[in-house]
Design a protein around this nucleic acid. Sequence first.
DNA 1: CTATTAGCTAGAGTCGCCTCTAGGTCAAGC
DNA 2: GCTTGACCTAGAGGCGACTCTAGCTAATAG
Lengths: 167, 167
Amino acid sequence: MDLSIGEVSKRSGLSVHTLRFYEKEGLFANPVRRTHNGQRIYHEEDLEWLASCTKLRSSGMSLAAIRRYVELTRQGPGNAHERLALLHDHEKQIEAQMRELQECLDVIRYKVRVYAEHVARGQSDELWNPSHRDAGTDRDRTMSDAPCAAAEIAITDCLPTRREQRQ
Amino acid sequence: MDLSIGEVSKRSGLSVHTLRFYEKEGLFANPVRRTHNGQRIYHEEDLEWLASCTKLRSSGMSLAAIRRYVELTRQGPGNAHERLALLHDHEKQIEAQMRELQECLDVIRYKVRVYAEHVARGQSDELWNPSHRDAGTDRDRTMSDAPCAAAEIAITDCLPTRREQRQ
DNA sequence: CTATTAGCTAGAGTCGCCTCTAGGTCAAGC
DNA sequence: GCTTGACCTAGAGGCGACTCTAGCTAATAG
């Protein structure tokens, strides 16, 4: 039932370096035992705990926050309140993060759609080339009128138009 | 219509340091002009572009990737395909990120719920305190037997089902 | 005319999170 | 007995993304 650091590394997906680092940083729920000659011994529960940790990490919780949480658990019972607060806090953060991602996604999807259309029509070159103004005047204007998000396109994507404005 | 670095800083939310840094890193769509004595001059479009950049950044696109994108736009028309690929790629990444966050959220919400219940019942102390063995032998045993890590669950949280499986 | 404020550059420093190196021990297999 | 491979420690290094410092100039306000 004892696991070596190498096994834990394989099963957790964390490098042995990282495992030792996490230990040094106090991220293990219970102290890692050693063999007579100093090698680390882990158990299934450590893997479970690591799984939780990586979940927290991958959702953006800092190592410091995880450590705080670990410390609370190590103190034993009686601080459910604090732990709850910590978790709840992080929950809110994840929600905020997701909202933000959703927004970004909307913008990007819009762009992808626009680009995809152009590429599909094989018109990409003419459309965006200032030397072919006549080919897409309307389009260009609408784009630069579009609010920021769309404008980005007017921007990043339609630099030519802007260049012209400046000339 | 000209904006100083200070104004852009205020309006974009990026520090002047960061603006100069971004410029050095080649993240501006068009070269930043200067006044006769070397001060940077920005325009509305730069703000729009920065808004797009921060959207990309906040959705986890690296500065390097943004730079690649900028370079494509700067090259002018004719590479819609590459730009599309880049965006599409990032779209996939955001989606993956969101799935991951959702998973984390599920776990955390579960934990929060469990903790909240305990706290609400005011039982937190007894429940988790080994010195009240009699108060909930079954539970307590599981908990204190559960090696802290599991304990995490027990964990942090108590994944009752798992605890039971262990008994 | 001086003080303040905003800007400039080059480059150093910081922070979070690993990742690697050097130099060593130990157990097992040939 | 020697090699190989997994492990150990302490500490250095690296990377991304800023953030700040030192030492400067230039315009403006009192």
